[in-house]
Amino acid sequence: METWGAQHAAGGRLPPSLRVLRYHLFSYLRTWRSSLTTSFLAPVLYLAAMGVGLGSLINHHVGTVDHVRYLSFVAPGLLAASAMQVAASDSMYPVMAAIKWIRTYYAMLATPLAVKDVVLGHFGWVTVRLVITSVAYLGIMAAFGTVHSALAPLALVAAILVGLSFAGVISAFAATQENDQGFATISRLGLIPLFLLSATFFPLRQLPGWLHPLAYATPLFHGVDLCRMLVLGQLDWVSAGWDLAYLVGLCALGLVLSRRLFTRRLVV
């Protein structure tokens, strides 16, 4: 008699979580045009506005920031922030849609796929999205002349980690929601303040001292810090280690939390 490993029993070769990823790729390829423009347009607009507009003003008045032009300073911050944005938005409405509106997850769970596959597939898909947008961002940064180190490609890894650390906790949150109102709150009270205060646009020392611990506590700060060190080639191994540990830890937490809350929501 045959042995019935989970894989074999489910009658397929490709690991189930990769089948979920394949679904996301398939449905993305059917509708890719709209999101692809935002992947490239947003960085061009941000860098142009920051570099040509704000940057020339700052360079004119205060000279360099942390020994580089303002555009070079701000670009890695925007790379990390855009990763946060992409991962967060892919983990809010699409997750809610797959639970409540289109019920894609229920369709999946009626097949050999299980909740862990749904969660891993979601993370895999967010990773693909992060690779696309971050590579685009870094390429455009290079075109703007803001890449100053051979370590810069490692900033892609940092950006992906930033994105996944947000994707984890936000998709876990999304799985607890009955409607999309909570997402607006997350954006207003979470993402936008982080975007503005995580040393994306100015060095942390510009903030009053009592705000520093708060900045250290947020994932975006660590992502921005890591990306900036790598892109500018100003690596401080100790703080890079802390940044990395923080981001990896939050990714792991998000994964565990998502698995648990997706299960609570979908398997009743």
Partner: peptide, 20 residues
Amino acid sequence: PAIRARIGLVPQEDSLDLQL
């Protein structure tokens, strides 16, 4: 998973991908 591989389910609420 092994059982679901051999079951077809028509759920009470449709779960079709409407955009596709």
